[in-house]
């Protein structure tokens, strides 16, 4: 695939991809049950609730109890999907997930919207930037941060087919939607190489994938060939794809809507350090909380925009020996 082949189909919220995905999944998988902690609207659950009301559990604002109930539902063979904002899906209920879900190997799908800075005006109380780290540290947890609407929809359906706990992270704002409509380009645990390149590798997850595509297009104008990898699955990480790309390009930029401590960048650095040490630059928040603002304003202020990725790529390239 080449950069020029990547085109925006439309702009949609990734969370709406969840809403559509769960509705379609429920039609074919009768074990799917959806729980929410008073956020059905935010997850676009209207169609699901209308048609599958008997498989919808309104928990009220009880995130801890919701996680526990989800663990219990798996014992009867159900596949529970829990829905609340990323902050309340992880930090608020870390111990419940740790003991009742992860340590207990329960087939719970923890689905988290409004992740990262781009939830915007609600500010730092709701903008969790530590959730990928929290979840990826749990043994047995699969962590997925799809890049757009189509991919969130595909991931929502795909996670029903793997046994074990999953953390599925997505966001609030409308965002460029560019992956395949049928989701056939999404495979859990398999890195998606969006564009091949030779000078630097851009590895991103979630909303930052599109920013990386934009950055690669900018770099191309300057004659710099960037490989763009959508690392939607942060755990288990596709280490083979990372090693292959870094061996080719010799430099990497990681981009995530997350603290650079404990996120995707750290995961890539670990692979690099063990296998193919190369210069790495990090795009992400740096040991800070967020604040209120428009999504694009926040991404710019915290250095998570296209110009910063371009600059980081040049810096990484300049550090090659």
């Amino acid at each position: 695939m080449a950069l020029e082949d990547i085109v925006i189909l439309n702009e949609k919220e990734t969370r709406a991809g969840f809403g559509e995905g769960i509705y379609e999944l429920a039609k074919t998988n009768e074990n799917v049950v959806v729980l929410t902690a008073d956020l059905a609207g935010s997850f676009k659950l209207g169609p699901f609730i209308k048609e599958f009301n008997n498989r919808f559990v309104q928990c009220g604002i009880q995130e801890a109890n919701m996680i526990g109930m989800a663990a219990g539902l798996t014992i009867g063979g159900k596949i529970p999907y829990t829905t609340t904002f990323a902050n309340f899906s992880t930090g608020r209920v870390y111990d419940q997930i740790r003991q009742s879900v992860a340590y207990s190997d329960k087939n719970v799908k923890i689905c988290a919207s409004h992740a990262g800075l781009t939830l915007g005006e609600d500010g730092a109380t709701h903008q969790i930037l530590e959730d990928i780290g929290l979840m990826k540290m749990l043994p047995g947890m699969t962590v997925i941060n799809p890049c757009d609407f189509n991919q969130t929809k595909a991931a929502t359906k795909a996670i029903a087919d793997i046994h074990g706990p999953v953390y599925l992270r997505f966001g609030r704002p409308k965002w460029p939607n560019f992956t395949k409509e049928d989701g056939s380009d999404f495979v859990i645990g398999k890195a998606q190489v969006l564009a091949e390149g030779t000078d630097v590798t851009l590895i991103a997850c979630g909303h930052m994938v599109w920013k990386s595509v934009e950055a690669a297009k900018e770099l191309a104008k300057e004659g710099i060939s960037a490989e763009v990898i959508n690392m939607h699955t942060i755990k288990p990480l596709d280490t083979e794809a990372v090693i292959k790309s870094l061996t080719k390009t010799g430099a990497v930029v990681t981009a995530e809507e997350h603290n650079i401590i404990g996120g995707l960048g750290d995961a890539i650095a670990q692979v690099a350090a063990r296998n193919i040490p190369v210069p790495q630059e990090y795009i992400g928040t740096n040991d800070t909380f967020g604040e209120s603002g428009k999504p694009e304003q926040l991404l710019k202020k915290y250095g998570l925009d296209t110009p910063n990725i371009v600059a980081a790529a040049k810096k990484a390239i300049s550090r090659k020996k």
Binding site: V57, A64, N65, M66, I67, G68, M69, A70, A71, G72, L73, T74, I75, G76, G77, K78, P80, D95, Q96, R98, Q99, S100, Y103, S104, K106
Partner: peptide, 21 residues
Amino acid sequence: RVASGSLGQGLSVAIGAALAK
């Protein structure tokens, strides 16, 4: 059927299992 020790979690799990039944 579930780990316990960190307190307060069992009844929530039991409710989920009861709903599954």
